[in-house]
Amino acid sequence: MSAESPQPPAVTVENLTKVFKAGLGKAAFTAVRDLSLTVNDGEVYGLIGPNGCGKSTTMKAILGLVTPTSGRTAVFGRPSTRVESRSEVGFLPENPYFYKHLNGLETLLFYGRLCSMSGKELKDRAREMLALTGLEDAADRRVAGYSKGMLQRLGLAQALLHRPRLVVLDEPTAGVDPAGSRKIRDLILGFKEQGITVLVTSHLLEQMQEVCDRVGIMAHGRMVREGRLDELIAVENETELVLADASPELLAEIRALVESRGHGARVVRSGHPRTTLEKLFLEVADQ
């Protein structure tokens, strides 16, 4: 891996532990325990897990928004504690919110200036992002009046504004209508084509299954399963035989063959011999 690409991975998390200290006399809470993960350049990495398992906390640590209790995080090889590490990252936090008194366009201009963009380039890019996220009509309305899904879209526009090489999306589809959520999925697939790395969490596992190259499943602050999506959801002791245009007679013949000469082998089912990410999630979450 490192032999092929001299470039550092997009995200490295090494033995991250985050303990939230409570007030006096209350027990501290460990949100993330000894978590390690790597997101390689150009891949789409999905982080899934039950509510409160530490996904958002991990993302905030990667962005340098929370200080790790122990362990290290880095973006493109630069430690998250350094400001430069954030220059090529776009972050969409969960339930994003913005200055109420600004309108959509002003909000994007504000964030663009923070990324050292300016002038016509910034204006054009802001308009482009508003169009991309379907907010053109709301561009001159105050953010205070935005609905949940609109805020989410604005958050996405803000994250993509400065053409980052890595986008970190914390539940990008939360509160977004089905059409919008499909569009976000297509957007992520588009990133993959452009070589933009994506780290994403979502509870919409069907969509995650469609976009992710690799997934990590977290529970209680730990990584419990991690791997390439196709490997994770493949079933080990089963074999897939993909036939095209097979007639029912042929299938019946194959079945008969397995029964007569299979030496204990049997046809489990025909169709799609894979578990779904959803099944896997439930299985892991139950453990």
Partner: peptide
């Protein structure tokens, strides 16, 4: 409270 700080500090803003 509004979590605007997250989006601001997630930009390269010291």
């Amino acid at each position: 409270e509004d979590r605007t700080l997250y989006t601001i500090l997630a930009k390269p803003v010291p």
